[in-house]
Amino acid sequence: MGAKGLDEFETTALLVPEPANRHDPYAVVVLVQHETVGYLPRNDAVRYQALLRHLTTSGFVARVPCRIRGGQFTDHDYDRNGNLAPIERFSARVTVALGEPHLCLPMNTPPQELHVVLPHGGAIQVSGEEHHLTEIKPLLQAEGESYAYATLHEMSDSSGRTVKQLVEVRLDGKRVGQLTPKMSGELLPAIRHLDAMGHMAVSRAKLRGNHLKAEVTLYCARAHELPHDWPGPLGHARPDVQTEPEAPTVGDSSSESPAATGFHAPIPPKPTRIRFVAPPGWPPAPEGWEPPPGWLPDPTWPRAPENWSFWVAE
């Protein structure tokens, strides 16, 4: 059996529960470009059922990284005369990336103020968490780890002989620690840049611990790792829901155009008597929802196809 023309590519898939499935009420269909490519294994479907149904009832659909590998291969089978003969077949394998169920959704929501979530990056340990266990405990889970949105703020530290500018880390507006002078220097340029634009800096944070001890770790890009045109055009921020929080994509910084950087251009104004249509790979818009003025899609969502019509006639 020989393979030929084997291809592999990465994309995103939607996971949609099918409670009315007559074979299995826990079935979860996997969609790529809104076409069914398979189902989650039953054990996984059961584990993620509560999470996926929660997203569905909230008007969202889970979107996850997906890899597809397939192509033509030569096999052998018996023909009508009973002779063994070569036959061409097509085979494909679809793999999706899923975090643990308790890590798929943040324990809090992003701030209501205008904000930008920093692109994913290496781990940055927060210090001083031992003094803020009361603020961290409500966001911990029984599994011993969770993730949340943390806001980053510049602060002055005058505890030493000289005044130092550090990064203060907050969860839901409450201080939970700060970064070392070295790590603060890695993030302050980005924080100041956003502040000058009237936006708050937000980072994904992983929380670990229990009622006795906890630690907070940020996962965000340092200032020198950001594209030269970051953060691109800014509009009204919208909470993002992901099922793989530590695997967002980062746009190519080799060009200034929105299509090359991974950032989106603003949605065109809505004409009259039509409705908004989300492109393939975006979470379906709840019934009656329309993008508010200046709204921008999540930078990690797939870019809309060229000449995509965001509005259609009723």
Rank of each mutant, 00 (worst) to 15 (best):
L31Q: 13
P279R: 07
P110M: 03
G288P: 07
G99N: 12
P138D: 09
Q33A: 09
W230R: 08
M183G: 02
L234A: 01
P65W: 03
W295N: 07
V64Y: 04
P111H: 03
R93F: 09
G82V: 13
W308R: 04
P268F: 06
F9V: 07
H34F: 05
L118F: 09
P297E: 04
H153M: 01
H264K: 13
A201G: 02
Q125K: 12
L6K: 11
P266C: 02
R93K: 13
I136M: 06
T12Y: 08
A85Q: 15
E129I: 02
F9H: 13
K4C: 05
F90L: 09
L234P: 01
L55K: 10
S257I: 01
S146A: 12
Q242V: 12
P111F: 06
M107E: 12
R63M: 13
R222S: 00
P297A: 06
N83R: 13
V117S: 01
S309M: 11
T95N: 07
Y48S: 08
D79G: 12
G177K: 06
A205W: 01
P119A: 10
H102G: 00
T151P: 00
S156T: 15
V116R: 11
S253T: 00
Q125V: 10
L51N: 09
I68T: 04
E129P: 06
E168D: 15
K213W: 10
L139P: 04
G294V: 03
Q112S: 11
S253A: 13
G173D: 07
V167K: 00
H23S: 12
F90Q: 09
S254T: 00
S255V: 03
V64R: 05
R175N: 12
T56K: 10
G2M: 10
L194E: 01
N307E: 13
A285P: 12
P189D: 02
G59R: 05
D240S: 15
L139Q: 08
V116I: 12
S158K: 13
